[in-house]
């Protein structure tokens, strides 16, 4: 486990060092009106939605699944909240409505995967596509802007640190606590490694799979609230666009295998930070906009390659044990 996290840690440190070299003030923080400001804080704040969605994604991937619909779900959450507030509703009720609706969407994904047995990538592709349409229907095709001080706190507020990152870290702590202090983590991994054996051992595999999809949808909903709150607007087309890809990437960089099974929440945290730092780095070191995406791709490939020898070793061990030593 420690080994698997070595390369992500080194990659993150390397990126930070690169930033300090280019911008000597990169690490400087200043306290103003009880708010911390600085590049590091920006990274944390902007990375909060990705981290949150990646946490949900980690558990889904651990059960051998994947959830492509999280970006669309995030857009729906923003759309519902903003539309309700714009119509004069209470922001708390609006956010509650959004979370409830997204939980239902998670139930839908879980139903397709665990009850109907549809492959996760296809099952969630349905909502990935349809979800944007639903968000459009809710906002009636407009970008809905709101002016609610309460709602604005979620994405842009500060309690010394940005509230968004506090929420994400709280969820990280909660997930770590719940999965490792209860048996949920063991059962999730067991279902991910060997679903048939788990079923015969009496594990409620269906319930577990259902649970992780609902959890992923809820994470996406909160992330959607952060994104839309930050700009005080709901954009059905662009909110959370491609964020599912960043989330999957964060999980993979963090060392959780897409084949399911053992997962690492710390790895996912590192993965999300790497991706956000990378995005920031692109701006701070002044890379031309037209090659930003290529630069990001190169770094991601490098990180994945660095992990590769470790992963091959792990894979070799797995293969070794299948050929039972005689």
């Amino acid at each position: 486990m420690k080994n698997r996290l070595l390369w992500p840690v080194l990659a993150l440190v390397a990126l930070l060092i690169l930033n300090v070299v280019v911008t000597p003030t990169f690490f400087s923080l200043r306290l103003q009106d009880g708010h911390l400001y600085g590049s590091l804080i920006d990274i944390l704040r902007n990375g909060a939605p990705t981290l949150l969605i990646a946490l949900g994604m980690t558990l889904v991937i651990a059960t051998r699944g994947i959830d492509l619909s999280v970006g669309a779900v995030a857009a729906i959450a923003g759309a519902v909240t903003c539309t309700h507030i714009a119509a004069g509703g209470n922001p708390w009720v609006a956010m509650g409505l959004a979370l409830a609706l997204c939980a239902v969407l998670g139930l839908w994904n879980g139903f397709l995967v665990s009850v109907l047995g549809i492959q996760p990538i296809i099952a969630t592709l349905v909502l990935m596509t349809a979800g944007r349409g639903i968000a459009m229907l809710i906002t009636e095709g407009q970008i809905v802007t709101v002016d609610s001080p309460v709602y604005r706190q979620v994405g842009a507020g500060f309690l010394v640190l940005p509230i968004a990152i506090l929420i994400s870290l709280a969820v990280l702590g909660l997930v770590a606590l719940v999965t490792r202090r209860t048996a949920l983590g063991l059962l999730i991994e067991s279902v991910g490694v060997n679903p048939s054996a788990s079923r015969l051992a009496g594990v409620r595999a269906r319930t577990i799979i259902w649970t992780v999809y609902v959890f992923a949808a809820l994470c996406a909903a909160v992330a959607g609230l952060m994104i839309s709150s930050n700009v005080s607007a709901a954009d059905a087309n662009n909110a959370g666009l491609w964020i599912e890809m960043d989330a999957i990437l964060a999980v993979v960089i963090g060392g959780t295998s897409l084949a399911g099974g053992r997962y690492s929440l710390t790895g996912t945290l590192l993965g999300a930070l790497i991706i956000q730092t990378l995005t920031t780095t692109v701006y701070t070191i002044g890379i031309k906009p037209e090659i930003t995406l290529v630069f990001k791709a190169v770094v991601v490939i490098a990180v994945c390659l660095m992990q590769a020898p470790v992963r091959v070793r792990v894979g070799g061990r797995v293969r070794g044990k299948q050929g039972v030593p005689a």
């Binding site: 067991s190 060997n194 048939s196 054996a197 053992r262 299948q322």
Partner: peptide, 13 residues
């Protein structure tokens, strides 16, 4: 292999 052990998990688990 297919319906018994959960290979990646420990003996204890």
């Amino acid at each position: 292999k297919a319906e018994g052990i959960v290979a990646d998990l420990s003996v204890r688990d």
